[in-house]
Nucleic acid binder design. Structure first.
Length: 278
DNA sequence: CTGCATGTTAGGTT
DNA sequence: CAACCTAACATGCA
């Protein structure tokens, strides 16, 4: 699933491939995935050029010429693929941006159709609910600010990490991996985690995200980069989908539990469960 | 066939 | 408001 590292890798790939390139034509094959905007994609995109491509949390933001911006959220199974125009049209291809020159096009694919695209006016970006509500970037926030922000909350630590308004960009994989590295049980209340452990968590989050970015992301099933390449970080996961296998630190078997309705992977020895009732 | 799991977010209730 | 719960989406699998 594309979380912060995968989205970062897609953004970097897009920059290499389509910066400064202009859109000739748009084919919308599944209109449902385009969020209802006053601006119709097919009407307004042609003629625009990609001027800046960046990421905020898991959201891809493409600034275009003529005061337009294209937002893309990959959700679970979305892919942005840069392909030759004559590449066979793969199943679940829902939108195509035909680019000028080079005989390539950018295709949006999404097996489960949970992802979306939206065209907005650039000046309205900062008020866009999807962006305005996002918490701080985990790779930019200081340890002190992180400890203050997270430690002030009484929720269970894992659902809090997944809450994009608390901190932006973490999903199920990296939340589990970071908590394991910091030796914090996912059921523990954030406000019950010591300052030392919260600082450790801040470092674990930054480490695991950076390592994953350097490995071009994690491909569990669907994730692909812009050129269709898989990530490499799945080979370095320590708990995610490793239930029944020994913990690399203590040898106890990793277990899969349910936290806030989400499948969650922990080492029962390294991550001490809170006493019931807390 | 049923029913569940999946990740993320929106929307609702307590 | 904070915390928590559930629905929704499409698909694949037990």
């Amino acid at each position: 699933m594309p979380e912060l590292p995968e989205v970062e890798c897609v953004v970097r790939g897009l920059r290499v491939r389509i910066m400064r390139r202009s859109i000739q034509r748009v084919t919308v094959r599944l209109p449902r995935i385009v969020l209802g905007s006053p601006l119709d994609l097919a009407e307004n995109l042609p003629g625009s050029t990609f001027e800046d491509i960046r990421r905020r949390g898991k959201l891809i933001i493409m600034n275009l010429s003529r005061g337009l911006s294209l937002l893309v959220h990959l959700r679970m199974t979305g892919q942005l693929l840069y392909l030759p125009i004559d590449a066979p049209l793969e199943k679940h291809t829902h939108l195509i941006l035909h680019l000028a020159d080079h005989g390539h096009q950018l295709r949006y694919r999404d097996q489960r159709q949970f992802g979306w695209l939206q065209l907005v006016e650039t000046p309205r970006l900062e008020n866009h609910p999807q962006i305005a509500q996002l918490g701080p970037e985990p790779l930019e926030i200081s340890a002190e600010a992180f400890v203050r922000r997270i430690g002030a909350r009484r929720r269970q630590i894992k659902p809090l990490l997944l809450d994009q308004t608390a901190i932006a960009g973490l999903g199920n994989i990296y939340a589990d991996e970071a908590l394991y590295r910091a030796k914090i049980h996912p059921l523990r209340r954030a406000s019950d985690v010591s300052t030392l452990k919260l600082k450790r968590l801040h470092r674990s989050i930054q480490e695991v995200l950076r390592e994953a970015i350097n490995c071009s992301g994690t491909t569990v099933e669907q994730y692909r980069g812009v050129d269709g390449e898989t990530g490499d970080f799945q080979g370095f996961l320590r708990v995610y989908e490793r239930q029944g296998r020994p913990c690399g630190r203590c040898g106890r078997l990793i277990v899969k539990i349910r936290v806030g309705g989400r499948g969650t992977h922990v080492c029962p020895r390294c991550q001490r469960a809170p006493v019931s009732g807390s």
